[in-house]
Amino acid sequence: MDKSIEVHNLTVSYHSKPVLWDVDFTLPKGKIIGIVGPNGSGKTTMLKTIMGLLDADSGYTEIFGQPLDKVRERVSYVPQRESVDWDFPADVMDVVLMGRYRKNNLFKRITKEDRRIATEALEKVNLLEFAHRQISQLSGGQQQRVFIARSLAQQADIYLMDEPFVGVDAATEDAILKLLRDMKNEGKTVVIVHHDLQTANEYFDWIVLLNTRLVAAGPKEEVFTKELLQEAYGGRLTVLSKLGDIIGSTEFPLREPEFKEDKAEE
């Protein structure tokens, strides 16, 4: 299998309370992949850790067989729509152009080429006529499409999207789905955090079922079974979550630091 993302024995805590326990999986290239699980199952934490926004207590992740820093320009990230203040003074084009920002052009002006790429991205999400609309005046679905356009403007090979289907209208949902399939046909990999079981089966080729620990990962036909879904959604694991509370409130180190070093060297 051609690998896109590898996650190795990953344990992550949030406010020193563990939300992912020893998760380990490998994802293929050129597929639409869903990270699926109930609320509070660590899906967003998973994505943020892969993107280097959160530090792991132990374990590590690799993209295209390399650490993130080596392949950053091939990776694109779409945060949750609610994570930003849409009242910020900017228009649609301003936000999409942010997808062209790079470490090596931080101090340079935006080029014509950047504008061309951003315009193309807007066209792909059907928002060209809104290019100079204030972002505060957009509907939820339009805001989501702006974020996706910004991500397209990055011209990456792998796209990580956090709940892009939440709070969008049917037209946006269709537009996003069509876009995802086009991207897949171009050989891109798309990883999507998604909480809705009803639609997961229809949207994705490959599914990672998560509930604090890894329940299953694989082609959807193998993962979308009654038993596994029951396991992921059938109530929280009481012992595990109690243990998490204890660790969170008593400052236990989750792993000895040396242990982490060993893992990283493997």
Partner: peptide, 21 residues
């Protein structure tokens, strides 16, 4: 630093994710 300040103010996670310092 205009671009950096703008993105840091609007969406710091994204600035991080695209590898800005």
């Amino acid at each position: 630093f205009y671009k950096g300040f703008q993105l840091m103010t609007f969406n710091e996670d994204f600035a991080h994710a695209i590898g800005l310092p």
